[in-house]
Amino acid sequence: MFYRKNLPGWERAMRTIGGVAMIAYGLFGMPGTMAGYLIAGTGAIAIATGFFGFCPMCAMVGRRLPSP
C-alpha cells in the first residue's frame, strides 16, 4: 500500500532535524531514564515521518498537500 505524501518539504526537513535533536537529548541529556528513552523514541518517529513524507495523524484530520 502506498501513501500519498502529506508533508511539505520544509516540514519534512524540520521533523528530521528535530528528531535527531530529540534522540541526542534523550540518550545523552537524560541517560538511562525512562523519560530519556521516550524522548528518543518520539524523535525516531519524527525522523520516520520526515523521511517518508507521510504523517498518519495529519492524514486522520484530512491534511493534504495542494495539487500542482
Rank of each mutant, 00 (worst) to 15 (best):
M30Y: 09
R12I: 00
G26R: 03
M1I: 00
E11N: 02
P68M: 03
A24R: 03
A35Q: 07
G32E: 12
R15G: 04
Y3C: 12
P31I: 03
S67I: 15
A21Y: 00
G26Q: 01
I17D: 12
A35H: 13
G62M: 04
G41P: 08
S67P: 04
P56Q: 02
V61I: 11
A13Y: 08
G18N: 09
T42A: 13
G36A: 00
M30S: 02
W10C: 05
L27R: 12
G19P: 09
F54I: 03
M22W: 14
T33E: 00
I47E: 03
R4V: 11
L38T: 00
P68I: 03
G9D: 06
G9N: 12
R4Q: 03
A44E: 03
A35M: 15
A44T: 11
G32Q: 10
R64C: 10
I39E: 08
F52T: 15
R12T: 11
C58M: 14
L38H: 02
A40G: 09
F54L: 05
G26V: 07
G29L: 08
R4L: 02
P56R: 04
G19N: 02
I23F: 07
C55Y: 06
Y25D: 04
Y37A: 13
G19E: 09
L7D: 08
G18V: 09
M22Y: 14
M30K: 11
M14V: 13
E11H: 04
V61T: 06
L65I: 12
M1R: 07
I39A: 11
R15L: 14
P56E: 06
G32V: 08
P68G: 03
G19L: 07
I23C: 10
